[in-house]
Nucleic acid binder design. Structure first.
Lengths: 346, 346
DNA sequence: CTGAAAGCGCTAACAC
DNA sequence: GTGTTAGCGCTTTCAG
């Protein structure tokens, strides 16, 4: 089952030239005569010559490929990001090697070892929920691997990053609930390790405070695996609904938490928004079709992927070491549905 | 911005050995003494030696990577498949290079050229909607590249393939509509080139016939780009609703068509299922949350990805050419929601 | 048991 | 203008 490719050598032999002449002719070098070039080109065409990028990689110590690590591909937010990543890298002639951490630190470490051993020229990563020690990333970074963080970032490594304005997204979502008459607004959030969690919760709390509501930690529940483990969400809901002062609205900080919450509420026979209002971060493209239609904080995922890739390629292709790093902050969008409709007076 | 890796040479120099000895020691060759092996292993550990797979690929003419071509990553069905692909390839030490065709033939050809030039050891592909000439795939296959088709397959190349029982899925969906009292059942389907279209429409028609309804081509509308272009769906709906005998139900053959249809109906103010019932192929994980909850034909996408990868690795790793090919057919599942609830008498 | 050398496909000094 | 040669990191004969 092998697959014998035509090499430069074959062309050289066929034409009675040396390999270097052929090589130069193919790269349109000024040292080669027009006739020879034409000869070589025609022959390459005829034999269906395809350059071997592996040989090139070995020589140039670059692979024209970039590694991507996300927790999960089968997730609207991340698959849209990957789409954005792919759009840029494709147009620049890079290819994309994708790995999933499945929210496991161990798996992330293995993925990274693998990618770096495959000589990716750079790395785009959104860290796993279990990752609070980033020495594995630091080591790669110090050895000179260009890295750009997106979504779940860390400040511990000085490099570019791309996120949305998480504070703002959460603030607006929470304020929207307050404006619509909700007062006891709970939050179901991701792991406390993650920047997205702290930033979003900060926005949530600030919106409450600004509107004269004192945030309470009993109203904040964390799901360590961000809803990948469904029972986490059920637990969170159970604990919220055994409080003496039951919440009248819930804010969720990620896609899986949002849909997981809706499923849990539905199974418990709770009506949204009459029994409880819901607003959450989500990149589903069918929020409007839900019952009720869902108010979401939507992130420009495709653009995040594009921006991260642009920054990474900039790092990769820069001649001299870059010292100035950029944290690009995109704007999320609050899209209002019926799940947060104005509270009815009882 | 380069990234100097430790090589076998470094170890050899550090230990005053030859590179071949180091190489053999690392591969635990029987020819090397225990002491030397230990020495080398320790040194490799200390220097954090990572073998360079690019060098290996060049030598062995294999890359331990497989190429995947799908139309779109940001699609539940395909992202779930990719998850399955990744699970198997990861466990077998292969990595996955993903490209998207975006339903373009031209782009598919370019992707393929790229993947093959990167010496992928094998290819998993679901062809684009524009692909009716498959000579580009044939050429690769004849040159010895192992290929496995999934979902959108072709019979023109003799190799393994993995699909669901499309006929059965469509048959059951349609029969379910009939059983619930619908008689004028339309279909919105993908491009006629695709096997999934013909198989699913065959199931649809057969279910009608079996139940004493004569299928009519005026009730069948094709969306060439499968809903990637939204206006296609709007057109299809428009044409269906200007018929004298308007349909009372619609069957859709893919994920994007299904959600696109729902959006169109919602925008036109049509109620499901009262004005029109809907059943469609879809792998969304929130069908139950839709308004109304959606009856779907769900494909075991993760398993499709796994099966396709297993078959591909079998081809890649087989010592002798394989002549017997398998078409693995998985079973889709009809999940009943309210969008196809029994028809009310008027 | 270990080392020297060739070669995978390609490029780039360095000749001539 | 074109050829020769060395070398990217690794494995693998072939010698010793």
């Amino acid at each position: 089952m092998k697959f014998e490719a035509v090499t430069i050598k074959d062309i050289a032999r066929a034409l009675g030239l040396s390999t270097s002449t052929v090589s130069r002719a193919l790269r349109d070098s000024y040292e080669i005569s027009q006739e020879t070039k034409q000869l070589v080109l025609d022959c390459a065409e005829k034999l269906n010559y395809q350059p071997n990028p592996i040989a090139l990689s070995l020589k140039e110590k670059r692979s024209r490929s970039i590694g991507v690590v996300v927790c999960e591909v089968a997730n609207n937010f991340f698959s849209q990001i990957i789409n954005g990543i792919e759009s840029i890298s494709y147009s620049k002639g890079y290819n994309v090697i994708i790995s999933q951490s499945h929210e496991s630190y161990e798996r992330e470490v293995i993925d990274l070892r693998y990618l770096s051993s495959r000589s990716v020229d750079g790395l785009l990563i959104s860290v796993s929920t279990e990752t609070n020690d980033i020495s594995h990333l630091k080591a790669l970074h110090e050895r000179g691997l260009p890295i750009v963080f997106f979504d779940r970032i860390t400040e511990e490594i000085k490099t570019h990053s791309v996120i949305v304005d998480n504070f703002k997204g959460a603030y607006e979502a929470t304020e929207h609930l307050v404006k619509n008459g909700y007062r006891r607004i709970a939050a179901i959030a991701n792991s406390e390790f993650l920047n997205i969690t702290s930033e979003r919760l900060a926005g949530y709390k600030e919106a409450l405070l600004t509107n004269g509501i004192t945030p309470s930690d009993t109203y904040i529940k964390h799901c360590f695996y961000g809803g990948m483990v469904f029972s986490e969400i059920e637990d969170a809901v159970n604990r919220l609904f055994t409080l003496k002062q039951k919440p009248d609205a819930i804010f969720t900080t990620s896609d899986k938490l949002t849909t997981g919450l809706l499923k849990t509420l539905k199974r418990r026979g709770l009506r949204v928004p009459d029994d409880i209002a819901v607003v959450g971060f989500s990149n589903t493209d069918i929020a409007e079709l839900l019952n009720p239609s869902l108010t979401v904080v939507r992130q420009p995922a495709y653009e995040i992927g594009q921006a991260a890739t642009e920054l990474l390629l900039q790092l990769i292709e820069s001649k001299r070491p870059i010292k100035q790093f950029e944290k690009r902050v995109l704007t999320p969008q609050l899209m209002i549905g019926d799940s947060s409709a104005p509270k009815k007076k009882k």
